[in-house]
């Protein structure tokens, strides 16, 4: 049977207490304990710790824990995936992309915009008449405004769904 030093035996005390060591190692630990008072003290401590851990107390939960939790969750809006806004956002993006239709569309938009701005400045100076906006530009503006509104609503849903009451104060309001 192998002889153990204190340094070798002590890390084996917990598995020894749990009966997790193989027979030969357990016998070596037992033999070491028989001849070493310090390690016997450590062994006594090792034996007592599981029971003492089980006996660690915690106070009873306060009676207002349940009501405070229910009050807190009543204010929680669960995060949800809002399909409605997403469908609208995709539709509006598609409409705007279709209208702009790539670089050619952008260039057309730029020429329209600059022409209209020039006309508005001319109208302000009294040298030109107030331009009438093409109906498609109005459609684009309305689509952009709608996209901003829907996105804002969607963001509000997401932010509302992730804000979280915390602490006892959240449950006491």
């Amino acid at each position: 049977m192998k002889q153990l030093t204190c340094g070798q035996a002590r890390p084996l005390l917990e598995p020894f207490v749990d009966g997790s060591l193989d027979g030969e190692t357990a016998a070596a630990v037992r033999a070491h304990l028989a001849g070493c008072a310090d390690c016997r003290n450590q062994h006594r401590e090792a034996v007592s710790i599981p029971a003492r851990l089980r006996a660690l107390t915690a106070p009873e939960p306060p009676p207002d824990l349940l009501p405070s939790v229910m009050a807190a969750v009543a204010r929680v809006r669960r995060p949800r995936f809002a399909w409605g806004p997403v469908i609208l956002e995709v539709g509006l993006c598609a409409l705007i992309a279709w209208y702009l239709s790539g670089l050619a569309g952008l260039s057309t938009l730029f020429s329209y915009t600059s022409g209209e701005l020039t006309a508005v400045v001319g109208w302000g100076l009294g040298t030109a008449q107030l331009p009438t906006a093409p109906s498609l530009d109005l459609l684009l503006v309305l689509a952009c405004l709608a996209l901003v509104a829907v996105t804002g609503y969607h963001l509000a849903l997401i932010i509302g769904g992730t804000s979280e009451p915390s602490g006892r104060r959240a449950g006491q309001g």
Partner: peptide, 29 residues
């Protein structure tokens, strides 16, 4: 058990209540 777990972490009855409530709110979410 949740309150007991929280208490073992914070060792303070008031804070344990806060932590327990936070655990249940997280659970709900």
């Amino acid at each position: 058990r949740v309150y007991g777990l929280a208490y073992q972490y914070v060792r303070d009855a008031g804070e344990a209540q806060d932590v327990a409530q936070e655990i249940f709110v997280h659970l709900y979410r």
